[in-house]
Structure formats: C-alpha cells, structure tokens
Design a protein around this nucleic acid. Structure first.
Length: 370
DNA sequence: TACTCGTGGAA
DNA sequence: TTTCCAAGAGT
C-alpha cells in the first residue's frame, strides 16, 4: 500500500516526465512563427525581444495565428520599438489594427506602450505582478510574457492548455470552474528549466495535436500519460457550458458618394462596440426597419437608393444592415462627419462590417490601393 | 459572476 | 449551412 508521501512522489515523477516528453517533442516539432525565438536560439543565449513577445500576445488574444501574422509584420514595420509605438498617433494605430477585431486591444496597446515608456523607462516589467498592472495585460498575457520573454516559471493557462490538461487528467469539471484545478496541474509540471518553451510547447501541442475536434492522439508525445486516451474520448474535454443564442439586430447604413468618389464617414464613440473605429452613418442597430423608415433616418436628405444589404456576425449578436447609396455634390460635411477621398478609403480605420457596407454600395471601393 | 467585445477559417 | 471557436481582458 503506497503511503500519501509515496503517492505525491509518484505524481511529481509523472509531472516531471510529462514536461520532459513535451519539451523533447517541442525541440523537434515546434512551429516557426514570426514572433518566436526558436529553442536552438534560446540555448545559444539569444533572448527574445519583450516588445515583440508582448505585441504578439496581445494580437493573439482570441485570434488565430494566421490572422495575426500580417498584422504583426505590419506593426513591426511601422513601429519597431515600444518607444516608436508610444509616439505614434492613436488614430494610426486604430487604422493599422482595422480588421483584426476586439478593438479595445488596440486602444490598450497604445496606452500600455505609453505607460512603459513614460513610467518604466521603456522597459517591460519582468514579473507577472508588474505586467498585470499594465492595460490589456491580464492573467494569461502576464504569465506568457513573464515566461517567454523573461524566463520566469509562470503558469501559462490559455485555451490550449485548458484543453490539454483537462484531457491529460480527465477533468470533468466544467470551465471556468476547472481553471483552479488546471492551474494547479500546470504549476506542478512547471518545475522544468525552460518555462517559456514549456508554455509554447503546450500551446503548439494544443494547436497541432490536441485539437478541439479529431485530436491526433496517435502523434501525441503525451499519449501514454493521457487519462482521456486511456479511459474514454478526449473530445469530451474540456467540458464547457452551453452558449447563449445570438439575437438578430437590424439597421440601415448610408453611403454618400461624391462624383470623384469621396465617401462620407464619421467616428464611433471611443468605448463599446467598435469603439474608436470609423463608420458610415447608420441608424441604431436594434430596430426593424422598412425602406421608407431607412431612407428617412439618413444623416441628411438625398436621393437615397437601396444598394443591397449585408449580414455580419459579432460575438453576441447577428446584424443585418440595409445599405443605401446617394450621389451627392461636394459640400461641407455634416457636424461630426468627414469626407474620405477614394484613394484614402482603404487606409481608414474601417472595421470589417463597414468595409462590407461600402463594398455593397461601391464595389471595389475598399480594395483600391492608396 | 456574467456580459461585452470581432473576425475568419475549419468541419 | 450551421456551428464552433482562436495564445482573453475589462467591467
């Protein structure tokens, strides 16, 4: 009969073996990503640039690697250092972020860069607690930067880690209640000497092997230690609560265009949905409309004609917008509005939903180069 | 704790 | 077509 002490020692052995297997797999199978310092470089003493680690982690929040890549490259080209980003115009940052979604991240990104430069001498904090003080950096991102950029043994728990760990240990507790238990497991496995590689290895495993659907268990380095593989179906984990149904919202959008192709735009409020981004004039997005009501709610009288409609899906609601177009002579813009020249349209801080609206009214308008 | 907050790709 | 959901944070 094993004593409690023996039991704990056995558990520690298992955790240590898992970390070693995972790191050995990562050395061979790690993904090569623009923001990543590969393990061979780390072993040669090359240190990651905290600015790049931070920038990538903010962009990667709830966003796929493939979506982030071009934005990461563009940001690094425009603003190679945290100081250059701190000195940037906020509007230029929003323009560069347009299309990536979750626009509060862009506002917090700029605010964070300013704090790092003005309050911290241009250097990111090297501890979780220090990082947590900065805007846009929560529990996950603080742990990720501390471990990847500074080699701190922080427990990095993201969606990948939640999936890998709940499967490894058959944790049936639903998220988010299971987070405490997941974190405890990660902290025990962390004893390894390579915290940053361990975190990135867990994420690579989750992204390429231990996937949400149809996990490739036959290729998994942790297969022999995985409780879900041994006892049942890995796809059962993690257990998540049922999601709420998305309500439908409706509205009308108005694209006023001059003979030379300029389009009337305005800025949305700084906070909330699409905060700080640019849009064409629209009605509210709650009421059901008909054509007469739509044209009557335009920003000014004009010969508005239906140009079609667009559908867009946000995180918590779906939106149908009727699109109206009017040819108007050049004039002073209404209060709070501005004209964007045809050649400048593509560079505006237009979220995807607004590019859809403008495309419906003026095909090709947002795809022209400046 | 429970909402809010985007987008596009995969199955 | 529908559904899921991706390196979460702020309130």
């Amino acid at each position: 009969m094993a004593s409690p002490t023996d039991s704990r020692k056995h558990a520690a052995d298992v955790d240590g073996r898992i970390a070693e297997l995972l790191l050995a797999w990562y050395d061979v199978h790690h993904r090569e990503l623009p923001w990543r310092t590969p393990p061979a470089d780390l072993k040669r003493g090359i240190r990651p640039d905290p600015y790049r680690v931070w920038l990538s982690e903010i962009m990667l929040q709830q966003t796929t690697v493939e979506a982030v890549k071009p934005y990461f490259r563009a940001f690094l080209e425009k603003w190679p250092t945290v100081r250059s980003l701190a000195d940037a115009e906020a509007e230029d940052v929003m323009k560069a972020w347009a299309g990536l979604g979750y626009y509060s991240r862009a506002r917090n990104l700029k605010a964070c860069a300013e704090q790092v430069v003005q309050l911290l001498g241009g250097r990111f904090p090297d501890s979780e607690n220090g990082l947590r003080e900065l805007p846009g950096i929560g529990p996950y991102t603080a742990a990720a930067i501390a471990s990847i950029a500074f080699g701190r043994p922080a427990a990095v728990v993201d969606g990948n880690v939640e999936r890998v760990v709940t499967r490894l240990f058959s944790i049936a507790t639903p998220l988010p209640q299971a987070k405490v238990e997941i974190r405890a497991h990660v902290e025990r496995m962390l004893a390894a000497a390579r915290p940053g590689d361990f975190a990135q290895a867990m994420m690579d495993l989750g992204a390429t092997i231990c996937t949400p659907r149809r996990p490739r268990c036959m290729l998994c380095p942790l297969r022999d230690d995985c409780s879900a593989v041994a006892h049942g179906d890995p796809e059962l984990y993690p257990v998540k609560p049922a999601k709420a149904e998305k309500p439908m919202r409706r509205g009308a959008a108005f694209v006023a265009v001059t003979p030379d192709g300029s389009v009337l735009l305005r800025k949305r409020p700084g906070k909330g949905l699409l905060g700080g981004m640019t849009e064409v004039p629209t009605t509210g997005w709650t009421s059901r409309i008909d054509g007469a009501t739509g044209a009557a709610s335009a920003p000014f009288p004009a010969s508005w004609r239906r140009a079609g409609s667009i559908a867009h899906v946000f995180t918590h609601f779906s939106l149908d917008l009727e699109v109206y177009r009017a040819e108007v002579p050049p004039s002073a813009p209404p209060q709070g509005h501005f004209w964007s020249a045809a050649a400048a349209l593509n560079g505006e801080a237009l979220p995807t939903v607004m590019k859809k609206v403008i495309e419906a009214a003026i095909p090709g308008a947002t795809k022209r180069t400046r």
